[in-house]
């Protein structure tokens, strides 16, 4: 079994399960929708104001919604002792991790694609800067959330209060990534500053933490 075939098989299985049940995407979507509506009531911004706060709102909504999906990542595998079976199998642990992270990445990207029109409608958004830069920020930022989120979900699944623990572990570590996403998005939307530094920073963050996750995942998977 090569790393690639294990990754592909696991990813395929997860996507198919999600396609049939739609558990994660439905709960994420509805959660994000609620956040959008509540923020809209809470701030009631004009078009000009919303351009400067939208970066923060969008990413907070996606961050919270992503946690909903991330929490379900490993819960499924606990039920029939799948994780134990995985541990005794010769399959490389990092293949499992990469597959899970990619699966979550796809779920959150789908969520973002579906939610962005709603944000545009509710907040009357119109970007001053180039839109393709927003796509770059979204992809890098989503990976930053998802790679650490998948790892910390594997940590928190072993604690007593599973679902509560994930955001408590994930948010402090994600602070620089969230700052970078929000500032990059705001500077593109308002067109007042260059987002270059933040995009580079997100790329560095992604690289560093992907490496750390891959380095440590085996120990966490095999923790007794």
């Amino acid at each position: 079994m090569t790393t690639l075939s294990v990754t592909r098989a696991t990813l395929h299985k997860d996507l198919r399960m999600e396609w049939r049940s739609k558990d994660a995407i439905n709960s994420m979507l509805f959660f994000a929708l609620l956040v959008v509506v509540i923020f809209s009531f809470a701030f009631n911004p004009t078009a000009e104001e919303s351009r400067s706060i939208a970066g923060g709102l969008v990413w907070v909504a996606f961050l919270f919604a992503a946690v909903v999906a991330l929490n379900q990542t490993w819960a499924r595998e606990l039920r029939n002792q799948v994780l134990d079976a995985y541990r005794v199998s010769p399959a490389p642990p990092n293949a499992l991790f990469v597959a899970k992270a990619l699966g979550n990445f796809l779920f959150v990207v789908v969520l973002e694609v579906l939610m962005t029109p709603l944000f545009v409608v509710f907040y009357n958004l119109r970007s001053v800067g180039p839109v393709w830069q927003l796509v770059v920020v979204a992809l890098l930022g989503t990976w930053a959330l998802v790679v650490n989120g998948t790892f910390f979900a594997a940590l928190s699944i072993r604690t007593r209060s599973r679902e509560i623990m994930l955001p408590l572990l994930l948010f402090p570590i994600s602070i620089p990534a969230v700052l970078a996403m929000v500032d990059a998005t705001t500077s593109i939307l308002t067109g007042e500053a260059s987002p270059d530094f933040w995009i580079k920073m997100l790329a560095v963050y992604d690289l560093v933490f992907t490496a750390v996750c891959l380095l440590l995942f085996e120990s966490v998977l095999n923790a007794e």
Binding site: N148, L155, R158, L169, S219
Partner: peptide
């Protein structure tokens, strides 16, 4: 193990 991993993060 979990704590050590988090410490490195």
């Amino acid at each position: 193990v979990l704590a050590a991993a988090l410490a490195i993060f």
